[in-house]
């Protein structure tokens, strides 16, 4: 037995003076992380409803304001917020997931925009147009503004904070459960698929070979996803019932996300912005 970074004979290997891991739990009167969670910055600390209101304003601005005056500033604000809240990497990953849609938007508009008559050149029977390119880029910018606004609110808001806030604002238990299940479904499924794929690859399933070989791996991947999800639904239902999910009366929330005056101000501002853009749009003053 050898361990090049370890002294045989069970000598402690931790760096001298390293802080014991118990310390963080011992603070805050021994309350767990769920109760005493500290946000990582200003945007993270905003109330979930505030972040949703800001996202709504950004989406409305990106789509209702004509030309680049809508999506351009919105994207700039979103990038600045993502950098400040250190979520740029997550947003870029989500943006990558939208890549196939972006490509299809660009291809369709570049070659098939109705009424476009300003060709860039010719590619066989196809003629890409400047108008198509411009419209495709604008549509892509709006799509990215939409996905980034929603994604920013999502990645900076713990799901339990969102659910607790919805509950406090009067959404019933079933409604909160439905929202929670829907919000968590995608990341849960992604996590489940990742682990199942790892387990099957560890048993020699080829995910890097030819397409027909990879196709044979669909059943070993799909079956545990489906069976696991069904089993989880059953277990979760029983767990909820056993914890008096359907009992009458109002729940006591273990933790309520703060709702400060800055949150209320920002929500009013977002509402005013949405109303103003809608009014200007409806009266034709935005062009």
């Amino acid at each position: 037995m050898t361990a090049s970074s370890a002294t045989p004979g069970a000598a402690p290997l931790a760096a001298p003076g390293a802080a014991p891991l118990a310390a963080p739990l011992a603070t805050d009167m021994g309350l767990p992380d769920y109760v005493v969670r500290r946000p990582k910055g200003f945007y993270h600390s905003l109330n979930p409803a505030t972040k949703l209101a800001l996202a709504a304003l950004e989406v409305v601005a990106a789509f209702a304001i004509p030309g680049w005056l809508g999506p351009g500033p919105v994207l700039a604000v979103l990038v600045a917020t993502a950098l400040a809240s250190r979520t740029m990497r997550s947003l870029l990953l989500i943006g990558l997931a939208a890549l196939p849609l972006v490509v299809s938007i660009m291809v369709v508009n570049l070659f098939l925009l109705p009424g476009a008559s300003d060709p860039i050149g010719r590619l066989g029977p196809l003629a890409p147009t400047w108008s198509g390119l411009w419209f495709g880029l604008l549509t892509t910018a709006r799509l990215l503004a939409f996905s980034s606004a929603v994604a920013l609110a999502y990645v900076t808001t713990p799901v339990d904070d969102l659910l607790a806030d919805l509950s406090r604002r009067g959404l019933g238990r079933r409604g909160v459960f439905v929202v929670g299940a829907a919000v968590q479904m995608v990341p849960r499924t992604i996590e489940r698929v990742g682990e199942i794929m790892d387990a099957q690859r560890a048993r020699g399933m080829d995910t890097e070979g030819r397409i027909w070989r990879r196709a044979r791996g669909l059943v070993p991947l799909a079956a545990p996803v489906v069976f696991g999800a069904l089993a989880e639904v059953e277990e979760r239902t029983m767990a909820l019932e056993s914890r008096a999910f359907t009992a009458p009366g109002r729940q006591t929330l273990l933790r309520v996300p703060p709702d400060r005056s800055i949150d209320r101000a920002l929500r009013w501002l977002a509402l005013a912005g949405v109303v103003a853009i809608a009014a200007l749009r409806l009266t034709g003053r935005l062009g």
Binding site: R192, E195, I196, D198, A199, Q200, R201, A202, R203, G204, M205, D206, T207, E208, G209, V219, P220, L221, A222, A223, P224, F227, G228, A231
Partner: peptide
């Protein structure tokens, strides 16, 4: 090295059986 190739040398039994049983 590919995972499929290494699988012949290292057998890894995962913690949660439900994340692998399919047959």
């Amino acid at each position: 090295a590919h995972v499929a190739e290494l699988a012949g040398r290292v057998g890894l039994a995962f913690q949660n059986p439900d994340r692998q049983l399919f047959a």
